[in-house]
């Protein structure tokens, strides 16, 4: 056998191993879930019980609000990071990307010491206006926004960076001011990045677990409900909730792929 045959065989083996690992990591767990559901079928009563509907509604709605906030925070940040030059721009860029790499428990802890009753922002809010943030719906939205908005920034920024500078120069020579260029040239051309950013942010928000777990108190989101039901032995409900979350994530990813192709 020649050396080339050994290389070809080695290559085929490594591709085979990759597929095996993929099967173990993705296909096996999905199969396990389906087998669990088939072994312990869900009745309609359980499917429409409050144990399933409450976390579902809570997660869908809070993720929606977090995504909207992420858009309002993320687009201006992406614009500033793409087009403006200022001191410590790199530092701001790094801080925006921090939630990507920060462990969710650290994020949750940071939110606790910031928005808790004795926190940097929470203390004055509670003492002067009697406003409590921690362990409320607002806390969940803050936690989800914290992890979701960098997706909007990253995606929109990538789109903005792809806009040829000559288009912006052309708009300037035609008399357009900064806000007119933003509305009429940059934003329409960054549309794809905006849509994919929104979708990824929603996916990240609805699936957020670690930080939400630390700040949500008695409120239970979909990922938190899966965790508590799985630990509490309510496999039937955990199965249904997991399947719902998988379907949502799958749909989001398919939509994302379609948009990315536009």
């Amino acid at each position: 056998m020649s050396i080339n045959n050994y290389i070809t065989a080695g290559f085929k083996l490594s591709v085979g191993i990759s597929f095996l690992v993929f099967a173990l990591l993705i296909i096996a767990p999905l199969t396990a879930l389906m087998l669990n559901i088939l072994a312990d079928p869900v009745d309609l009563k359980t499917l429409f019980s409050r144990s399933v509907l409450d976390p579902l509604v809570l997660s869908v709605l809070t993720a929606l609000v977090s995504t909207i906030i992420s858009v309002f925070v993320g687009i201006p940040l992406a614009y500033v990071l793409t087009y403006k030059h200022f001191p410590f721009k790199d530092t701001l860029d790094t801080m925006v990307n921090l939630p990507f790499v920060l462990p969710p428990s650290v994020a949750g802890y940071l939110l606790l010491i910031t928005f808790g009753k004795f926190g940097l922002v929470g203390y004055p809010l509670y003492n002067f206006w009697g406003i409590t943030i921690m362990f409320t719906l607002v806390a969940i939205i803050i936690a989800q926004t914290f992890v979701a908005f960098p997706f909007v920034v990253k995606s929109v920024r990538t789109s903005m960076e792809e806009i040829p500078p000559a288009l912006i120069d052309a708009a300037k020579t035609l008399g357009a001011r900064e806000f007119e260029i933003f509305w009429q040239v940059i934003l329409p051309l960054a549309k794809t990045g905006m849509l994919s950013g929104i979708i990824m942010a929603y996916a990240r928000a609805i699936g957020e677990f670690g930080a939400t777990m630390m700040v949500s108190g008695l409120l239970v989101t979909l990922p938190v409900a899966i965790f508590t039901n799985a630990l509490g032995g309510n496999r039937e409900i955990a199965n249904v909730l997991a399947l719902i979350l998988i379907v949502i994530s799958f749909t989001i990813l398919i939509t994302f792929k379609r948009i990315a192709k536009i």
Binding site: P164, A166, L167, D169, A170, A171, K172, T173, G175, A176, R177, V185, P188, L189, K191
Partner: peptide
Amino acid sequence: PQERHIGFVFQDYALFPH
């Protein structure tokens, strides 16, 4: 540039694709 009243035809035309 907005106040100079100077037109510019760019090398790759820079037409707005949208």
